[in-house]
């Protein structure tokens, strides 16, 4: 029998896939839908934006028609919010739109690096948790902030590997190790994972899940890249659960070294 990975549980919800997918940047909603299928993801992010009042036609207008709400749990993000108040308003709008009372809390006022504002994020998290939201905050890889957030009742913490869309992998390795070590909620490495090996690395480190968007969406073949990330996440998780061998500076023979030629 093949060993199966432990499921991921976020706020009581059991998820068999530890790959969370973002839906942005795909060439078409159809391409997004197909890649979603190939990724095996069960948790999928969407965003909210001001509607275009000019009457122009938008090919992405009805994104929800391409995501089967019975199959995927939709996770609205608060991207675009510049502060806690805007993030809370966006969360209310998502609920009014019929989305689950889950929110990927992200507040990044700086457009160059899209680094999350820790003060506003903590403030918004407290408000939203009190209102009964399941809050998954996107944060810099700050162990102190991660702890503060789990203490106010967020359902996970989502530290970045490197800036959103940068594809630079895990540049925050030491901090993520500390966040994982002290976590009482799932740790989801979000942002900057540009290759399946980056996702595998996060999972081998003991992250509970990863969130990937750009690397899959802009791949030449998004479906196959989605599959590659799925396999990488599974491999990394199996490796973590199996117990990785420790590294050491010197060799350790794998074959007997007893002399046989005299």
């Amino acid at each position: 029998m093949l060993p199966s990975n432990q499921p991921l549980i976020i706020a009581g919800r059991v998820l068999c896939s530890r790959l969370i997918l973002g839906t942005g940047k795909f060439s078409s909603p159809q391409a997004m839908r197909d890649a979603l299928e190939c990724s095996g993801a069960e948790l999928v992010t969407v965003a909210l934006r001001r509607a275009d009042l000019s009457g122009r036609k938008d090919p992405f207008a009805n994104i929800l028609e391409f995501i089967d709400a019975k199959k995927y749990l939709l996770l609205p993000n608060t991207s675009g919010a510049m502060n806690a108040e805007e993030a809370v308003r966006l969360s209310h709008l998502a609920v009014a739109a019929g989305l689950p009372k889950w929110v990927k809390l992200e507040i990044h006022p700086d457009p160059r690096y899209l680094l999350p504002d820790p003060v506003e994020t903590l403030k918004a998290a407290e408000l939203l948790v009190k209102e009964g939201f399941t809050v998954l905050p996107y944060i810099n890889a700050d162990p102190v902030l991660a702890r503060r957030l789990q203490d106010v009742g967020t359902a996970a913490v989502m530290p970045l590997g490197s800036p959103i869309g940068s594809n630079r992998g895990i540049q925050t390795r030491d901090q993520i190790h500390i966040i994982i070590e002290q976590a009482t909620v799932p740790v989801v490495v979000d942002a900057g994972l540009g290759a399946p090996s980056h996702a595998s690395e996060a999972m081998e480190m003991g992250a509970d899940a990863v969130l990937v968007n750009t690397a899959i969406a802009v791949a030449h073949e998004p479906n196959r890249m989605a599959l590659a990330f799925k396999l990488a996440v599974e491999a990394g998780r199996v490796a973590y659960e199996s117990g990785l061998a420790s590294s050491q500076p010197t060799a350790s023979a794998t074959s007997p070294l007893t002399a046989f030629l005299g």
């Binding site: 973002g22 839906t23 942005g24 940047k25 795909f26 909603p29 997004m32 992010t45 969407v46 965003a47 909210l48 934006r49 001001r50 509607a51 009042l53 992405f60 207008a61 994104i63 929800l64 609205p76 993000n77 991207s79 308003r89 966006l90 209310h92 709008l93 998502a94 609920v95 009014a96 739109a97 019929g98 989305l99 959103i164 969130l211 968007n213 750009t214």
Partner: peptide
């Protein structure tokens, strides 16, 4: 400033000077 569910659109009256934010769900990461 108050989120309104689509089920209330038909009965909710708009008055002069009201502020509306009209948003939609879009793709995002």
């Amino acid at each position: 400033g108050e989120a309104v569910a689509p089920s209330e659109f038909a009965t909710r009256k708009v008055k002069a000077g009201d502020r509306l934010e009209i948003v939609k769900i879009v793709a995002g990461g």
